[in-house]
Design a protein around this nucleic acid. Structure first.
Lengths: 175, 175
DNA sequence: TTGTTTGTACAGTTTTTATTGTATAAATAG
DNA sequence: CTATTTATACAATAAAAACTGTACAAACAA
């Protein structure tokens, strides 16, 4: 017969394991996914030393882990009066994590793409007048591809904006 | 003075490098990102042997690479009359890639989550009657957290559906 | 049928990423 | 000011992932 403590642990373990798996989809290694789950179930913010204790891992790993999680907006650093150590708490509002994570990622993608296109397009444009007919044709085709890419990234930018200003929730309400 | 062929190569390289970087955000290693770019700029579908030649990598790597890219909906396997080898072409419609990629990923995430919650919730519910007051209180708090998670995943499911049926493009038009 | 071609499984290797322990700088306490 | 505490930089190690060559099974050709 299991104690109630053990049952609670069992229930939390099911969620923790799932979180470690799903965060893997976001480029977070499983161990750091479990670190997130630890914060998710914690009653309050935790210090690096408490996390180290809870996870049975080195403090260095906790330090790099929380930095990654904070960077991806899955956790926040918080401040508490009289507490000298850094404190971290899970972002339990998944809507906020979603918005912050994808806005950042997609914005970066858009930026990199537009930058590369801005460099490549003038070269291709020039080549559409090439004496070399094979190059000329390829350049023309490439221009079309880049034009399509730009259209997509314009759309993605609009999506990012609607996430940032919350208008997406007019279209797909939170219930 | 550069030849026009070299200029074309230069322009394509800028895009290729960018693609290798951005596909990294999607869990695709840079070399496989360049593999995608090779198909993206190719005039037509390519075989594993042609890719091997173009990339200067082993055929085995090409085989595993295209499998990953196909699985993530960045490329398609195509069939051509009289050609015995497998042929692959890039999905140049980024809208389609976006929809297919995120529908699959988010669907999987929703599924895993709902499954874990379905297992954990009954245990927690039982514990809300625990004699152990500390456990009882924790179980109650956890129930609230899971309830919020469910709300988010319901929303995400609606988003996936609106991507699948294209209704998202009523809200955010392609232009 | 037999002989080729084609894609991939598998084992071994290289490369990259994750993890740790130690050392140290910055911040705080006394 | 000096002591201590705290987080992290850094180098070393462990683990995971990417990549290759070989071997082989399935598909096709003759």
């Amino acid at each position: 017969m299991k104690t109630d403590e053990e049952k609670l642990e069992e229930a939390r373990n099911k969620i923790t394991t799932m979180m470690a798996n799903t965060m893997d989809l976001y480029g977070i290694p499983p161990s750091i996914g479990r670190l997130y789950a630890t914060l998710y179930f914690s009653d309050g913010p935790m210090t690096l030393d408490e996390l180290k204790e809870a996870m049975g891992m080195s403090k260095t790993s906790m330090s790099t882990g929380v930095r990654k999680l904070e960077n991806d907006h899955f956790i926040n650093k918080v401040w508490e009066k009289g507490v000298r150590k850094d404190l971290y708490e899970a972002q339990t509002d998944f809507f906020k994590s979603f918005v912050a994570f994808y806005c950042k990622m997609w914005f970066r993608e858009i930026e990199l793409n537009m930058e590369a296109i801005k460099k490549a397009e003038p070269i291709l444009k020039e080549l559409t007048n090439s004496k070399n007919l094979e190059v000329k044709e390829k350049a023309q085709k490439d221009m079309v591809k880049l034009s399509n890419a730009k259209e997509y990234y314009e759309w993605l930018k609009t999506l990012v904006i609607s996430l940032e200003n919350g208008e997406i929730f007019d279209f797909i309400p939170k219930k």
